[in-house]
Computed example of a mutant assay.
Amino acid sequence: MTLQVTPTAIPDMLVIEPKVFGDDRGFFFESFNAQAFAQATGIKRDFVQDNHSKSSRNVLRGLHYQIQQTQGKLVRVTQGEVWDVGVDLRKSSPTFGLWVGLILSAENKKQAWIPEGFAHGFLVLSETAEFLYKTTDYYAPQYERTLLWNDATLGITWPIQDTPKLAAKDAAGTVWSEAKFFD
């Protein structure tokens, strides 16, 4: 498995592009190979849970994180297109408080590595999108927190025209000044 790995403006958050083999019949690629992932990224993690969601246009999910049982996430889109965002919540990091946004789509087949200590969210840009992610720890609702998606301090530039469709917990997210962070 050949992977092209590109650091983002937050070097710990990575864009991962698998080698895709395609012809007039379609395409094939390995969406995950633990050995190749570790060799290409230097990251050795055990993924313990896979999640799959489907959402419609303008659905915004996030910005989610867990204050205990922190989750690293390897995310990708298998149908449609999303604007994917990671926010560094690690106080000891030189990129604390910064965010990165990128397009993930079924067409570009890019994946993003969102490290532990980050909040994560996405906005659906296509009619619908199916979003898959592997996590390094189990979902623990008692430790889940939501950072307000449109917090003015963060200033995330969401590519949206209308009011997004939000879950109640996302609409009631915590503002930056009251959020819990990681050391």
Rank of each mutant, 00 (worst) to 15 (best):
83 W>Y: 15
83 W>H: 12
83 W>D: 09
88 D>N: 15
88 D>L: 08
90 R>W: 06
92 S>W: 04
93 S>Q: 09
93 S>T: 13
93 S>P: 09
95 T>D: 12
95 T>Q: 07
96 F>R: 02
97 G>H: 00
97 G>D: 05
98 L>C: 13
98 L>T: 15
102 L>D: 00
105 S>M: 09
105 S>W: 02
105 S>N: 08
108 N>P: 08
110 K>I: 10
110 K>S: 10
113 W>Y: 14
115 P>I: 03
118 F>K: 04
119 A>S: 12
119 A>V: 10
120 H>T: 06
121 G>V: 05
122 F>R: 03
123 L>R: 00
123 L>E: 01
123 L>Q: 01
124 V>D: 01
126 S>V: 11
126 S>L: 04
127 E>I: 09
128 T>H: 09
130 E>M: 11
130 E>I: 10
132 L>W: 02
132 L>S: 12
132 L>D: 11
132 L>F: 06
134 K>M: 09
135 T>A: 09
135 T>I: 04
136 T>Q: 01
136 T>M: 02
137 D>S: 14
137 D>V: 01
138 Y>C: 09
139 Y>Q: 07
139 Y>S: 14
140 A>S: 12
140 A>E: 05
140 A>D: 04
140 A>H: 08
141 P>L: 01
142 Q>R: 00
142 Q>K: 03
144 E>A: 10
145 R>E: 05
145 R>D: 04
146 T>K: 02
148 L>H: 08
149 W>T: 04
151 D>F: 14
151 D>N: 12
153 T>I: 13
155 G>H: 11
155 G>V: 09
157 T>A: 14
158 W>S: 06
163 T>H: 07
163 T>Y: 02
166 L>Q: 10
167 A>T: 11
169 K>V: 14
169 K>S: 14
